[in-house]
């Protein structure tokens, strides 16, 4: 089992962070491990502390919150931070200590990290969820000549054919509803994309705390001016009768994933 591990919170580029300290997960002292112009925010981690089964969701929530608090503090102090996924422990390996391994990784990825820093600098991530009322969309999409024709036909036909036409009606109504949903999803996405090209669709389709259906769940990365424009976009969204929620600001978690680093 490795003797030394480092818990890694985030990375900084071209800032003076040598004297930066704060309290992190489980009261550990977070400090900046520097490598040239790069700095990694870490704490020395006692590995044996994690050789236990999880103590429940509340424990996970508490640790994730502390992970995020360190990143938010760094974001405030240095303009931004490149966040690491929660739970990253660097190990000593191959005759090299954890700090040597981490410095080596930073050195190898310097160019990519500098590029990423340039993208996220001075910007914040917000989570935006736009909701719709299914009944309203059904009502909108239900105004269709073909639907009216099928309904009219059903009234004139016998039970057997009316049943089949009923199925046809259901399929047509579902197609129209889907088209309506796609229309609004594309519309709102397009409006937000017009404000910032840094927009990512989130996987979660859960309508948290809502009885409405989730229409769009995105993360945007914006500066102060763009934040105002996003606010305007959401105001327009509300005017059209859609509700929304905004969460943040967050460190730019959604914009530093491997696939996002080079965009």
């Amino acid at each position: 089992m490795p003797a030394e591990t480092l818990y890694l919170y985030g990375l900084l580029v071209n800032v003076s962070a040598a004297d930066w300290h704060m309290e992190g997960i489980d009261g550990n002292s977070v400090f900046a491990l520097t490598e040239g112009a790069l700095a990694a925010l870490v704490h020395n981690h006692k590995l044996e502390e994690n050789l236990h089964l999880p103590r429940g969701a509340a424990e996970v929530k508490r640790q994730v919150t502390l992970h995020n608090e360190v990143l938010c503090k760094a974001m405030g102090d240095f303009g931004t931070v490149i966040p690491l996924k929660f739970g990253t422990l660097i190990v000593g390996k191959g005759g090299r200590s954890a700090s040597e391994n981490l410095r080596g990784w930073m050195k190898e990825n310097r160019e990519l990290l500098e590029k990423t820093w340039g993208i996220v600098k001075g910007k914040r991530e917000y989570g935006i969820r736009i909701y719709c009322q299914r009944k309203r969309l059904e009502s909108e999409s239900g105004k269709d000549d073909e639907l009216d024709a099928i309904r009219s036909d059903i009234r004139r036909r016998g039970a057997g054919l009316a049943y089949l036409l009923g199925k046809k009606l259901e399929i047509r109504a579902a197609e129209l509803l889907l088209a309506k949903i796609n229309h609004y999803t594309d519309y709102f996405y397009g409006r937000l994309e017009g404000v910032t090209r840094h927009i990512v669709v989130n996987k979660s389709r859960l309508a948290i705390n809502r009885e409405e259906d989730l229409l769009l769940n995105v993360s945007v990365l914006v500066d102060g001016e763009e934040a105002g424009l996003v606010t305007e976009c959401l105001g327009m969204c509300a005017e059209k009768g859609f509700s929304y929620s905004v969460a943040g600001p967050f460190p730019p978690y959604s914009f530093v994933e491997q696939g996002q680093l080079v965009k």
Binding site: K61, N68, P83, K85, I90, K203, I208, G248, E257
Partner: peptide, 23 residues
């Protein structure tokens, strides 16, 4: 809702290091 949004990000997103460097 903030907790849910945070968990969605911190548990699934952010930089992921090479597996051979992590425990």
């Amino acid at each position: 809702i903030g907790v849910a949004e945070l968990l969605d990000r911190a548990l699934q997103k952010g930089v992921i290091l090479n597996a051979d460097l992590v425990v």
